[in-house]
Design a binder for these strands. Structure first.
Lengths: 196, 196
DNA sequence: GGACGCATGTAATAGGTTACATGATTAC
DNA sequence: GTAATCATGTAACCTATTACATGCGTCC
């Protein structure tokens, strides 16, 4: 028995507060969980595995009007395992971006359809960028310079958020570049237009 | 029988030239395949599946000094399938970044060990950025403005390379930010130093 | 009446990694 | 000699997605 990466993701959230499997599923649902995603069907068995290893425990909360729930708490052993893991070297991240894979062969497709694809994506990521920025701004307003202290409990959250902002900003800029390319007037098109 | 995303990745490379499974494994090996990765154990069966679907075919090349090899060619049907796929909407990309997951809880770890981790990563991504930039520069020198034509056979390659550059540049900037945070003088540390 | 949120689970399948397996040639 | 490159494959295992399953309360 060992802890999977998903297990550490769950421990990471549980280190801040008590949560149910349902809560965790919500946190790891796209596009909110912007550095790790998982479905509830993976989360429930993983929580059970963490419990068997003594890294979390739960208490059942009986609710009159809603289904009963299991509120999970990280144990001392869980916190120790997480603390050890965070500074261990990472494996080089596996890049799997379907959109970039399509882009690699985009010259084969219809330019107008391609432009439609990237326009949709631009909108999605512009919205995401705005959301991240708002969240960062509200954190900054509430916490101020504490966020910049690498021992503050909110430091990791703020650091990942900054990375999310940088990532989305870069993405948006790239969409704008490719859309400009796709809609730039082509000599051939111009000729056809002139004579048809 | 349907074509997996990996299948389209293989078709994408085969659209440009004939390749063996071994060649494809090399192209999809980290960190070269920066938008899709796969091992040879996944590639060989996938090529066979594409062949059964009539999207690729191969010819055996007998080599006197080296092992025989299968040189794969994309078929007309394969090219059509690829062309159709490139402009189809993408599923929202699943983000799974172990490093960011660690960052989320980094305040729990030792700041010096954390700094070592990010210093390593900074070096790796600085090198990757430089490599992408050199590749882009050499492409630009050879092909010039053709690269900016979305119908040019090199357009997709150039577009993904630009994205790679943007991505790595953003990453490097973020590493610098977090390292600055981790090594910034803390009042508490200063006090301890003064009195110990 | 139907969709959505809360809440937890299992089963079947697909996708991906690691390890096993073989064997010649070339470079250090 | 020994490690790396070329070259192709299979088997076992782990990880992740989709689908199946249940049931109450609230909102429109």
């Amino acid at each position: 028995m060992r802890v999977s990466t998903l297990g550490y993701a769950l421990l990471g959230f549980l280190a801040a507060r008590k949560l149910t499997g349902y809560d965790l599923a919500r946190l790891l649902r796209e596009p909110l969980g912007f550095f790790w995603t998982a479905r509830h069907s993976q989360i429930y068995p993983e929580l059970e595995s963490l419990r068997r290893q003594g890294l979390v425990r739960f208490q059942v909360i009986v609710q009159p009007t809603r289904p009963d729930k299991k509120l999970y708490t990280i144990t001392r052993a869980g916190r120790a395992a997480l603390r050890k893991w965070v500074t261990e070297p990472v494996k080089s991240p596996v890049q799997r971006d379907e959109e970039l894979l399509k882009t690699f062969s985009i010259q084969l497709g219809d330019p107008e359809e391609a432009a439609a694809l990237y326009t949709d994506q631009l909108r999605i990521h512009r919205d995401l960028l705005q959301r991240h920025r708002r969240l960062a701004a509200s954190l900054e307003r509430l916490q101020g310079k504490t966020l910049l202290d690498p021992r503050s409990p909110q430091f990791g959250n703020y650091a990942t958020l900054r990375r999310g902002i940088g990532y989305e900003r870069e993405r948006v800029a790239w969409y704008r570049w490719i859309l400009a390319r796709l809609s730039a007037p082509k000599p051939r098109t111009a000729k056809i237009r002139r004579y048809v």
